[in-house]
Simulated assay, not measured.
Amino acid sequence: MKWGNMTLKFIRAAARNSFLAFATAVVLTSPAHAERVLEEHAISIGGEPMRYFRLYDTGAKAGKAKGASPVIVVVSGSGCAEFGSRLPYFFEKFPAPLDVYHLEKPHVGKAATGQPGTCSREYERADNLQRRVRDTREFLEAHPALAGLAPRTLALVGFSEGGHVAPIVAADSPKVGWLALGGIGGMRQADGFLVFADRGVAPYANPSSRALLEKQFAEIAADPGSLDKSFFGHPYAYWSSHLFHDPLPYFAKLDVPVVVAMGEKDESEPIESGRLLKAFFARHPDKRFKFIEYEGASHGLQRGDKRHVHDFIAGLAKWFRNDPAAFD
């Protein structure tokens, strides 16, 4: 299972050619004293109508019951596929009580698959790092339940591209008390692509190469607002906001616990990026940081039939309580 519709999918394709306006609820499980429910709602962010999803257990509310996990906000990965409807998959093994929110990206339609060529022009105009950070920040303040949270009582969980958005938001949000990330590290994305090229990983090394990538990066930097020129399935306007972003200064600002999980065989973000982040935090022992490397696993933390993403997310429940057995 991938982190939404991620970069590699587009790479392969390129290589081959006002609030609560509505709500729907689906009962997902029926334990003896609680039900796990997925709801979809509308909200205005930045003056635009957007959608968000909430996955929660009825009965005792997360963040309020004794020993409960905090309220969680999930920031998804790249692409125009609908992510919110898949929240139950990711939290399949997470113990009750659970309360999770996810703001869908602007101009992502209902049940959108995110297949190459299906993202709208409106989506592409809005698809950049700065907009995602702005929307996430505003969501934390615009949603009544989130706006009313006390300091350090909310957990941000970022997957893939969302793992670059979440630390920026966490660095200046007094609400955030925990940061959990999957499929990201501490490198600029451009540097990560060059690592892949040097290692001989397709398509970065073939059909592309270090020289071709560096030439492409220069072209993107020279025309950063272009929606008509594309690279690996995304417009230059998208790449100019992501490729050259340095995440380390934002990690340096954090004073909350951080956990990062990566697959050793990650095909979208090199494992060297995660190891670089691990080394960075080793030089800052005052910060609480944990790095999990799943042997042989992919960007989606999967190895064969083993879905480590379920174990990682379920382990957050203990990690929030500072349990040393978390992720065992």
Rank of each mutant, 00 (worst) to 15 (best):
A32R: 15
S241T: 11
Q115I: 04
S268D: 15
T118P: 00
R16Y: 08
K175Q: 11
F312Q: 08
W178P: 10
G77F: 00
Y294E: 02
E267S: 13
E124R: 12
F251Y: 15
G63K: 06
R86S: 14
P249R: 15
Y89D: 09
N128S: 06
L276Y: 09
R51P: 01
H41M: 09
A145Q: 12
S230F: 00
G46F: 09
G192Y: 07
G59C: 08
A221S: 13
K306A: 13
Y123D: 05
P49H: 14
A111W: 01
D255T: 13
G79I: 01
M1W: 00
G162I: 02
L212R: 13
R275E: 15
D305P: 07
A14F: 11
S120A: 10
G67T: 11
G186N: 11
A60T: 07
Y52P: 04
L213A: 03
A23M: 11
A32L: 12
S209G: 15
F231K: 04
T58P: 00
L98V: 06
K265S: 13
A155Q: 02
E214I: 14
E39P: 08
D246S: 05
F10T: 00
F19T: 11
P247M: 05
R131A: 06
D266A: 13
A205H: 06
S78V: 00
R125C: 04
H41G: 02
L212I: 01
